[in-house]
Design a protein around this nucleic acid. Structure first.
Lengths: 330, 330
DNA sequence: ATGAAAGCGCTAACAC
DNA sequence: GTGTTAGCGCTTTCAT
């Protein structure tokens, strides 16, 4: 009646290869103890039979779990919900995970929450964790049994490898573009102060401005539209002759442009505005936003690959490039 | 890999409740055969001990799987990758799934692909499927062993429950707003022709225009920015006196506004533009986009809840409301 | 309605 | 190195 297609099991592979289940298992594991000929034979047979290990069985036996948790640190749950970045990250992660028969789930944690990783470690079903918006306290709270199964987007260390975008280079490129096109008094709306990896963009700003012999014009901010609105208002109030604003990210830039518009300030005529991330919306609005690229999808695909793929290929630190995307706003 | 810290197992619950593991299992399953007192006792003990069933063990024993697959039909893989909707859907799905200890993975399938569901059914590890952009052929291809574990976003039927946004009401509200504010010659850039659930918005357009005694101005389209660009160009070429354009979704509206801008047509002065979805970017650009709300997150949270939660509460068809969001563009 | 026992597919001890 | 033997935690026959 019901056509039940029996899936290929390790048992089938072992039998076909003329070895025991254990040997087959070892041969398929990357660094398992197995003789080279046996390993080759098992792998060939497995490939030929189209063997796909059952994640559930593997998890149950090995105690490893069947899902990747994208753990996002933020000041509030709402901040995560309204964050487009998370959607893009999940998109890439869920696509790669699918190829491994694994799923991805999402969890918010308060900034600096040292309880997150221990809780995740105690929880069954967690295969690995991708940490987004990592802070030092959280990084130091990695429990022993989660070691090697955590990857951080942003700052790394304490045995946790990291992947991030090269904000320093990207931000520098944007600033140079600003100065090269004649801007002189460039202000910056800062990223959230609690986020370590974001400090690199502030650093780039300081560095370039020092190089140009220009005084800094920094106001506090975050990664949301409202930071942009408020930030631009503060900038224009404190330094009315500002002729360019660098925002911590595109979203902030959108907020800044909204404020400038309401102030009757023309962008880019009076004030240039630049962001960071090159989100899809950056190219669509008016004026199209000058920004620096941020390969969010690449980063998160690489993160999941690092967790699920051959473990040998995981460098302690990886920086993906960011490039200037010059458009009309600056 | 290091072994896990021991968590509360069903065995612990059974022992504490003074029953066998089997009884405990039955008591926790919704409609399992168990006496009322035993069931109550087991549940109390389980709650007290903080028992969380191991998804992997459950999957292995029951053959159910540990992940939800978000299966998206689209004309190309790239169309999925650039779709903001998918990110938002995953966001909501992954958050709800996390509460059940389950992950979500993403898979693209060609439009009308009848092989998708059978393949997913044969695959181990698949607990359930959320079908996005469902078409009739795909809906009819649900294999027997996946029945009850598939939920469709869009059209339903063939034993597959569905959740969708009430596009008919939303689109009608937008159109009424257009006419109420004095627009007379309203064109529409159509949604993709292959998408059944999208026909409701075309229907709404036809209906309202017939009611107003106005001739239809429809051009073919899709859900991407480029459809908007091309669509608006076609509209203005064929009917230069058009004073409003209704786009199939916000993204299309952005594209349409870009074309109008390059044509020197003022929005909303000369031509009003309205979209559908109320994506975050709709509020940010200039002019802010008039549109209708689309509770994407609610829809996908409900879908995952339907797959993972108590099965009794899944209606065959559920329509979530869409409301006019009036802004400056129309 | 309940308990005992047999697996689900895999990995990890433990021998050899 | 390799096979043998136990489980991982749960659901499900089968008895009772």
């Amino acid at each position: 009646m019901e056509r039940r297609r029996a899936a290929v099991t390790l048992e089938d592979v072992a039998r076909a290869a003329g070895v025991s289940r254990a040997t087959a298992s070892r041969a398929l594991v990357e660094d398992g103890p197995a003789s080279t000929p046996a390993r080759a034979r098992v792998r060939a047979v497995a490939a030929g039979l189209g063997f796909r290990p059952d994640p559930a069985a593997r998890a149950l036996a090995g105690g490893a779990g069947t899902r990747i948790v994208l753990a996002v640190l933020a000041e509030s749950a709402a901040a995560v919900q309204h964050c487009e970045y998370v959607g893009r990250a999940l998109h890439a992660a869920a696509e790669v995970a699918d190829r491994y028969g694994v799923g991805v789930s999402l969890r918010w944690a308060p900034v600096h929450d040292r309880g997150l990783l221990p809780a995740l470690a105690a929880e069954r079903g967690v295969h690995g964790v991708v940490l987004v918006n990592t802070t030092w306290p959280v990084l130091e709270s990695v429990p022993a049994d989660l070691r090697g199964r955590v990857i951080s987007i942003g700052v790394g260390g304490a045995g946790v490898p990291s992947i991030d975008v090269d904000t320093l280079t990207g931000t520098t490129a944007v600033l140079r573009h600003l100065f090269a096109s004649g801007r002189q008094r460039v202000a910056m709306i800062q990223p959230p102060a609690w986020l370590p990896c974001a400090r690199r963009s502030s650093l780039a700003y300081r560095h370039v401005l020092a190089g140009e012999g220009r005084p800094e014009r920094m106001v506090a901010g975050g990664f949301d539209v409202d930071s942009g609105r408020r930030g631009a208002a503060e900038v224009m109030a404190r330094w009315p002759d500002t002729d360019a604003i660098l925002a911590a990210c595109d979203e902030v830039a959108f907020g800044a442009m909204a404020t400038l518009r309401s102030l009757g300030v023309d962008v880019p005529g009076d004030v240039a505005v630049a962001g960071f991330d090159d989100v899809p919306a950056a190219a669509l609005g008016w004026p199209p936003l000058t920004t620096a690229s941020h390969p969010v999808e690449l980063i998160h695909a690489a993160a999941v690959e690092a967790l699920l793929g051959p473990s040998a290929a995981v460098p302690a630190r990886r920086l993906l490039p960011s490039e200037l995307v010059a458009r009309e706003s600056a």
